[in-house]
Design a protein around this nucleic acid. Sequence first.
DNA 1: CTTGGCACTCGCTGCGGTAGAGTGCCAAAA
DNA 2: TTTTGGCACTCTACCGCAGCGAGTGCCAAG
Lengths: 344, 344
Amino acid sequence: MDARARHLLKSLIEQHINSGQPVGSRQLARDAGLAISPATVRNVIADLEDAGYVISPHTSAGRIPTPSGYRFFVDSLISVGPLSGASRRLLLQRIGAHLPDAEEVLHAATEALSQMTRMVGFIRVPKRATQTLRHVDFIALREREVLAIFVTDKGEVENRLIRVAEPLSAAALTQAANRFNASYGGRPLQEVIALLEEDLQQSRAEMDAILRNAMELGKEMLAADQERMLVEGELQLLDLPDLAASERLRELLSVVRQKRELVMLLDQSVLGSDVRLFIGGESGLAPLSDFTLISAPYQIDGELVGVIGVLGPMRMPYQDIIPLVDGTARLLGQALSQGEWLSS
Amino acid sequence: MDARARHLLKSLIEQHINSGQPVGSRQLARDAGLAISPATVRNVIADLEDAGYVISPHTSAGRIPTPSGYRFFVDSLISVGPLSGASRRLLLQRIGAHLPDAEEVLHAATEALSQMTRMVGFIRVPKRATQTLRHVDFIALREREVLAIFVTDKGEVENRLIRVAEPLSAAALTQAANRFNASYGGRPLQEVIALLEEDLQQSRAEMDAILRNAMELGKEMLAADQERMLVEGELQLLDLPDLAASERLRELLSVVRQKRELVMLLDQSVLGSDVRLFIGGESGLAPLSDFTLISAPYQIDGELVGVIGVLGPMRMPYQDIIPLVDGTARLLGQALSQGEWLSS
DNA sequence: CTTGGCACTCGCTGCGGTAGAGTGCCAAAA
DNA sequence: TTTTGGCACTCTACCGCAGCGAGTGCCAAG
């Protein structure tokens, strides 16, 4: 493909991103800044259509980009700049406002990203598998009801109400918690579960219920990890004038709700260290085939732990969105890393 | 209004609830089970239109109920039976599966209600203002970062990461927590905040940061109380073939999101002890004017603490929905009350 | 290789005509 | 006085049709 064809393709896609309409040869010849006639443009565009980059919705309409066209566009036709100063400041402010609480920071970053891109934002939260058990508490709430609280070294807190066969005194519970912390504190969650399972055999009977439940709670924390994902701004999709409330949209929303498939997709992306795009059917998930998903992994203390991103129509301003996703991932990582956040 | 007019109105509304279409005189004369001609029906219906119970979308269409029509229908034309055995069993199972954890039970009940009614479910969760502080924990997480955990007597857990000026030893933190529990444990949250504010003056300097933050955390718990509401199944609204994705729908969803107005509305309803309906504009909230909201308060240990309900189109099967909302509220209350849940 | 010309295609819009549903009114019947 | 059949009227939904405008593909000339 020669330079002129590339230029025309770029111009065509940019115009379509702006207008949402099919782009015709006359308009393209005028706006592309090349001194060529519409007829020449038609010849070139016909080749681009053969190559699969654009398609005509019907005979007498202009052309719109195909998923391959968008792919070529982002890979070879545009260069994404750094995050604009204004966006950066806005992100800094919105993320920084919620420090030091990790959970809130994750939430704030996703919400900010969703609002700034006007698309659905999502985030795969840090894995618990790597976290260690920091502290356990057993608190008698009512007769025979004990509240168990797990705290990890990353500050995640999970709690569970447990029914026990007979009342336990506050002192007994404190003692139990102390023993528990002494034995299992500081170990990776995975290991704690395994040890608990082992120890369950020889422990005293009245502690059984609590140990067993603590084990279940730990297991659930790890299991729930498989699908821990926050989604923000699903409503944004309803604002798309294009497909507003079509059948596709419903499918998409239900995929977003179920999360499972999406999580698997994102977990692939955590491997690379760069922004990643799934345009149209590239993800392999049918309901996403009319949409584009952009994700970027983020790292805490130098370790890749999660992915953040957005989901929107294929027709989106990639030049603006990509830096936003990338920048949010970086700032989020800094915010959650030890001592890196000095209002940068 | 005579018996025949009532019967016709009832029949008209029932038919419209089933079909969604305007109901004409011929169809009504046929299906109402009365031996009268369409012409007679027309005379009667014309009176009902004058009275404001039905309206004609246009000259040559049949009639559809107005909000007043629905109001009269539920108040005077139908009698709502008890919850069906099957529904009751399903609810028992879905709610019971999550005992004894209150948070999960609230969630499960709302989700079940939403799915069984195929509408949006919501719940106003129990007020914290009445809860007492059960236990506090301070846990050193990293250098100069302390995790504060609040537990109330109802088993609600709230946590917050706190930055302190200089590192505190684990022993110091334990001691602080012990003192905290001794001084404030067992008191209503409201009171704890007040006492903290007082004590903050004369406490030792290094504890200031923690006390101050604990106070903030407590205040936030009470403040957030103003809008604590769970919403389930917003997606259900997209399934309505009627207004699917109209402008109204968008408005409605944004009201549901913002919650504030809705919460105020629900808090009015917690006063009565019975099912309450807001049909069309009865709530005074403009975005709800095409919809019906049905709510029922629930009580824990004999005390009215919250409201659960559904939101859907005015055209809904009231005879089925009302018992479902009522029944869910009752079962939920039993589940959360002391010792009342014996698989009933 | 580029360009202007031209026939052709196709979607969109507006128009008129028709069928169908349902109403309101009236005069006759009960 | 109430009910009923009849009838004219109204309005929507649907259909086919023509005109338009946009855009294409092809071709022959530059």
